[in-house]
Amino acid sequence: MTERLPAVILAGGRATRMGGGDKPLRPLGGRAILDHVIARMKPQCAPLALNANGNPARLAGYGLPVLSDSIPDHPGPLAGVLAGLDWAAGLGASHVISAAGDTPFFPVDLADRLWAARSPAGLALAATRDETGKTWRQPTFGLWPVALREDLRAALEGGLRKVVLWTDAHGAGEAEFATTPIDPFFNINRPEDIDEAERLLGLTA
């Protein structure tokens, strides 16, 4: 990839398994989970934006655009992707990269690998393979073409919520990443996951 693409960090989930609130703002290793995510993304993509709903002032300290969903009723990560696509279109970018705001160890070569794996439609998702050989797609980590944003908007307005149903319909490519020594897509969903993330942080230091 000869130039860096914009990226949107999906931080708009309702964190029900964490007891509510802004999960990416929970502390990890002395700073917010979101700080770790931004630090991983900054060398790969520019500019960056956050997708989050509610009062954007709580994220003002990051100095990044805060994009709210344009589709009502919290329809899930695809709405955040669409917000990122609309923002990227305003920048004149051809694509946007997405990453989850609760996944602090994602690969440092995510953007390049997604770009290399893109399909003819310009789509790609990150993926891993388990010990049985089964492939697991990581639907919040993807490369999304601006050219498909109206198609995505129509799908969301029609009730589609599952990421892979839409990406499969457009033949998304897959960028497969190793899960050793740690799973780079370990995400923090529950309070006990913070303890595991602290352990993993020590392995990546």
Rank of each mutant, 00 (worst) to 15 (best):
H170L: 14
A169K: 10
D151P: 04
G173Y: 06
P181C: 08
L165N: 13
E176N: 08
I182K: 00
A155M: 10
L156C: 06
G159T: 04
L152V: 13
K162I: 13
P181A: 03
T167K: 03
G158E: 10
E150A: 11
A169D: 09
R149Y: 07
D168N: 14
L165W: 13
E176G: 10
P181Q: 03
A175Q: 11
F177G: 04
D168R: 07
G159E: 07
A169L: 09
V164N: 12
A175I: 06
E174P: 02
T167E: 01
A172V: 00
D168T: 08
E150G: 00
L148P: 09
V164D: 11
W166N: 05
W166I: 05
L160K: 08
G171F: 00
I182D: 08
L152P: 11
E157N: 08
F177N: 02
G159Y: 06
F177H: 02
A147D: 13
L156I: 10
K162W: 07
A147N: 10
V164T: 15
A147F: 03
G173F: 02
A178L: 11
L165P: 00
P181M: 03
D168P: 01
A175F: 11
E174G: 01
A155T: 08
P181V: 06
D183K: 00
A178P: 12
D183T: 05
A147E: 13
E174Q: 13
A172G: 01
L156A: 06
R149W: 05
A169T: 02
G158D: 13
L156T: 02
D183S: 09
L160V: 14
L165K: 11
D183H: 11
H170K: 13
E174L: 15
L165F: 13
V163Q: 04
A175S: 09
G158F: 12
F177W: 02
L148Q: 14
L160F: 09
G159C: 07
A178V: 07
R153H: 14
G159M: 03
A175R: 08
D151I: 07
D151Y: 00
R161N: 00
T180S: 15
A155D: 13
T179I: 15
